[in-house]
């Protein structure tokens, strides 16, 4: 049976089979719902701002004005760029160290057992405490923020890679050994692809945490960057500035998620068989 004769009615039993391609209806509905939520939010914000002084809660129009002015101001891109650089540097260091040590601890049970408590300790220390230490050690410099981002993101990545390398399928390693692959090849061709989905999830989390604590670090230990500007605005009770920066950061994180991470994830994990429960 290869081709159904065209005389057979497409619809049997009265109900059409659900189409497997993405349907248009629900998609439009979702857009409408998102827009509705946005309108509702703006409306409530507007109403609330009418009953409060501008330094407590500025209205949407005022924040929009402040944001337009902020984006046009010469320092905006510099501050944004500085913060982004610090987050990226801390995150990159955390990735290198986390992946390297995660693989090492995963590969050696003795090392793993030896270092396990240390990791627990690092994980229990709050990011704010790292920020204070960083301030003492590095003073007002880029390294304060980089260090705090690093200390927040690194244990997360390390733990995931470590745990992930324990889930590597021994049969695949045996296969690679049967083909006489070197240790480095086994790491690159069996371990890394196994760990990649877990790593991706934890890196995304680590980057988010890192980006958030970077602001805390900058309010304490920097004389530039978004965190520093936020603190300045707070000191001067420029609430609309605080809102404008917040808006910028939210927009950036959304853009990162939908323009970089989601497409990357889809591309990297094309091979995965999707579990469907419905």
């Amino acid at each position: 049976m290869t081709a159904a004769p065209s005389s057979v009615p497409a619809v049997a039993g009265g109900a059409p089979k659900p189409a497997h391609k993405p349907a248009r209806g629900p998609w439009l509905k979702i857009v409408a719902m998102r827009l509705g939520l946005l309108v509702l939010f703006l409306g409530l914000w507007q109403v609330a701002s009418l009953g409060a002084p501008a330094f407590v809660l500025p209205g949407p129009a005022r924040v929009w004005e402040a944001w337009s002015a902020l984006v046009a101001s010469p320092g905006f891109w510099r501050d944004l760029g500085l913060t982004f650089q610090r987050v990226l540097a801390g995150f990159a260091l955390a990735t290198v160290v986390g992946v390297a040590f995660g693989l090492l601890l995963g590969a050696s049970e003795t090392l793993g057992r030896f270092f396990e408590p240390l990791l627990t300790v690092i994980n229990t220390v709050s990011s704010s405490i790292w920020a204070i230490f960083a301030l003492i050690w590095f003073g007002l410099s880029d390294w304060t923020t980089i260090f705090v981002v690093f200390m927040t993101a690194m244990p997360l990545i390390l733990t995931t890679v470590w745990q992930g390398s324990k889930t590597v399928n021994a049969d695949y390693v045996e296969l690679a050994r049967a083909f006489r692959m070197s240790r480095a090849q086994i790491l690159a061709k069996i371990y890394l692809p196994t760990i990649l989905p877990l790593f991706f999830a934890s890196a995304r989390l680590a980057f988010g945490f890192g980006a958030r604590v970077s602001l805390v670090a900058e309010t304490l230990g920097a004389s530039s960057g978004v965190g520093y500007r936020l603190r300045q605005a707070a000191d001067l009770v420029q609430t609309d500035q605080v809102f404008a920066w917040t808006l910028t950061l939210v927009a950036l994180m959304l853009a990162l998620e939908f323009l970089v991470l989601k497409p990357l994830e889809t591309r990297l994990f094309r091979w995965k068989k999707r579990a469907e429960i419905d």
Binding site: D171, Y172, F179, I190, K273
Partner: peptide, 12 residues
């Protein structure tokens, strides 16, 4: 070369 009892294709 060695063909194992299961196919051991790498899913990725």
């Amino acid at each position: 070369t060695y063909m194992f009892q299961d196919d051991r294709l790498l899913p990725w």
